[in-house]
């Protein structure tokens, strides 16, 4: 399944978790990139940071709790997980509100991160 050529994938998640299936389908694409043994980094920004909110109980609205899988990404060798500082601040989210520790970076660092990857996809 692994293709010899390697590309550095940056997976940017910008959508809130349960209002649409966008974010959930984005995660499926991320896991597929991992299955192809490509190096993948993950960034949560804009409403995407809401995916990291702890204590989500989407069963209450009949949705799947796909965000609960994020802390396990390390098992798949996805270790570079970031959240944008400005997005968190704008939404009043603090690091202790998140379901896992992430690397908090500012916008400028995120711009540099995008430049350092070959394929940048936002979901």
């Amino acid at each position: 399944m692994a293709t010899p050529a390697r590309k550095r994938f940056l997976w940017m998640s910008r959508r809130a978790p349960h209002g649409s299936v966008q974010a959930q389908e984005g995660l499926d694409a991320l896991l597929m990139a991992v299955a192809f043994e490509q190096p993948v980094s993950v960034v949560f920004l804009d409403d995407g940071v809401y995916q990291l909110k702890r204590d989500q109980d989407p069963a209450r609205i009949g949705r799947k709790n796909f965000c609960a899988g994020f802390p396990s990404l390390g098992i798949y060798d996805v270790h570079d997980i970031y959240a944008e500082r400005e997005s968190l601040a704008l939404r009043g989210l603090r690091e202790e509100d998140l379901l896992m520790p992430v690397r908090v970076v500012d916008s400028a660092a995120l711009g540099a991160l995008m430049e350092a990857h070959d394929v940048v996809m936002s979901f």
Binding site: T3, K7, D28, M32, A33, Q38, V119
Partner: peptide, 18 residues
């Protein structure tokens, strides 16, 4: 086909445009 086709395109193509 499956999502693998998308990732494969991202690997093989010079540009992937969404």
């Amino acid at each position: 086909a499956g999502l693998g086709q998308l990732i494969e395109s991202g690997i093989d193509a010079d540009r992937l445009i969404v």
